[in-house]
Amino acid sequence: MLLIRCPYCEEERPEVEFSYAGEAHIARPADPSQLNDEQWAEYLFIRTNARGIHYERWCHRHGCARYFNAVRDTVTDKLQMTYKAGEPKPDAIGPSGGDK
């Protein structure tokens, strides 16, 4: 089970308190009616699914109930950092290390 640090509660809590909410930093189109089908598909369905460093959203469902972002290596499942929603995308710490 992952141990996840909620950036709002400033506490490390077990994964069962959280729910995963998919890839982070996918911005809702500013002007939806201008999008063609290709761009809708990209927004709705296409995902990075990174093998290595992954930017993702979590919700502290059974805590403060707020959404935040995390950087995690999907090969080792090691969480590098978490940060508040709306904060800029940080650089990952070094190479993913496990991408074999």
Partner: peptide
């Protein structure tokens, strides 16, 4: 499990 992963293992819960 709930999150994207290539680790080939999941959580005990």
């Amino acid at each position: 499990d709930q999150y994207v992963s290539y680790s080939q293992h999941g959580a005990l819960h």
